[in-house]
Design a protein around this nucleic acid. Structure first.
Lengths: 216, 216
DNA sequence: TTGTTTCAAACAAACGTTTAATTAATTCAA
DNA sequence: TTGAATTAATTAAACGTTTGTTTGAAACAA
């Protein structure tokens, strides 16, 4: 079982990274099984054999994507939880902004993770991804329980509160087409780049969590 | 483009239904592209050629699943919205219970819909599924806006409030393994049948939406 | 030289689908 | 009710593609 949370840095040439980036977007859009190595090679403008030459197999390419991209997404939540200058509510606000930023700036990677969570092939990968989510949930749970102990927060369900936070973001970010239709369906509206949308999402999440958490 | 919301009743023999049921569970677990017709035929105990004999193709089998299962999931939200005996908050509570029941009692079908939402092959199906979600969102949006007009509810973001409702449920229901780990990770805990878990989810959602919606 | 990268070609396996033959079920005049 | 005629259901085998992967030679770099 591999563990990309503790992976060591890997030197990666431009071509390898280009394949990883192209593969991530293609897998996110069409699904892992729905995209062939030939599709990928064509789209990336490299020879078919290069994928196996660099990564060994299609499965290992998937692992390489997650390993490579996950290193940009670590640590932030722990910093927030450990910051003694912030009270519990400020920490939760920071968590909200951190999450929204992370997901909005890496929509493809995020879709990829959720595809893997939804389907249950490749058990190692499935478990590894679950571990990330569980770890983040426990961090946020710690923040919420601290707030409850200090009587700043009401007694809520910490795990389901985290589910509400992540779930709300996912609901609008996992399908761009649905997001556009939900959000008044204006033409050429791109939720991933529209700054108004991002602000709207953060505002809503803060409203939800403030009203849920705060003692009147 | 097909439209299963207005489909006419179709007689279906036992064997056809058995294939549909088996396929739904297999597709939900392994993904549509991740499950071959041979896998399906073996699991369902029928000859390989029967799938194409009954449904024409693998794609049409997928459509048949959605057509067949969607007819059990219609109408309830509209009934709630139109019920003049309920005030806005009571309607929202009814929506919560209806949603939780629906998803908990059809987890495979629900996973299938979200897989299709996440990946973007088979455009007709993608659009058709989005239409279901959009329609439901508009119904709930109507309830929320009615509550706001009657000053029972605060001014909230109706679409994102719906995203919070659906997203929270999805977050715990889309991956059983993650749900188990989030929810204290007790052995042999099955979120789909555990009545305590269902009650816990409904309680949390009511707490979230009451505190968000109600004017102090 | 030596080792690395690139490529067209080929590989076997798996895929969705079709075929053609066989069996089961239904129809219907006698 | 019977029994031939017709339709429906079932099967093993094969079809042509596409799949992930490997090969071996060529091009490039050190």
């Amino acid at each position: 079982m591999f563990n990309f949370a503790a992976s060591t840095p890997i030197l990666m040439n431009e071509k390898k990274e280009h394949i990883i980036d192209t593969a991530m977007e293609l897998f996110a859009e069409k699904g892992f099984e729905g995209c062939s190595i030939r599709d990928l090679a064509t789209k990336a403008g490299v020879n078919l054999a290069m994928v196996n030459y660099y990564f060994g197999s299609k499965d290992k390419l998937f692992e390489a994507i997650v390993e490579h991209k996950a290193r940009f997404m670590r640590g932030r939540l722990d910093e927030i939880a450990a910051d003694s200058k912030l009270d519990s509510l400020q920490k939760m606000d920071a968590v909200i902004e951190s999450y929204v930023n992370k997901i909005i700036s890496n929509p493809s990677f995020h879709k990829l993770l959720y595809q893997e969570l939804l389907v249950n092939e490749r058990n190692d990968m499935h478990d590894a991804i679950i571990k990330i989510f569980v770890k983040n949930t426990q961090t946020v749970r710690g923040i919420i329980e601290q707030g409850i102990r200090k009587k700043q927060f009401r007694k809520v369900d910490p795990q389901l509160t985290m589910a509400t936070l992540m779930g709300t973001i996912n609901q609008v970010m996992l399908s761009k087409a649905m997001c556009v239709m939900l959000m008044d369906g204006q033409e050429n509206f791109d939720p991933y780049t529209d700054t108004n949308f991002k602000a709207r999402l953060v505002r809503h999440l803060k409203q939800v969590l403030h009203s849920l958490l705060l003692n009147k």
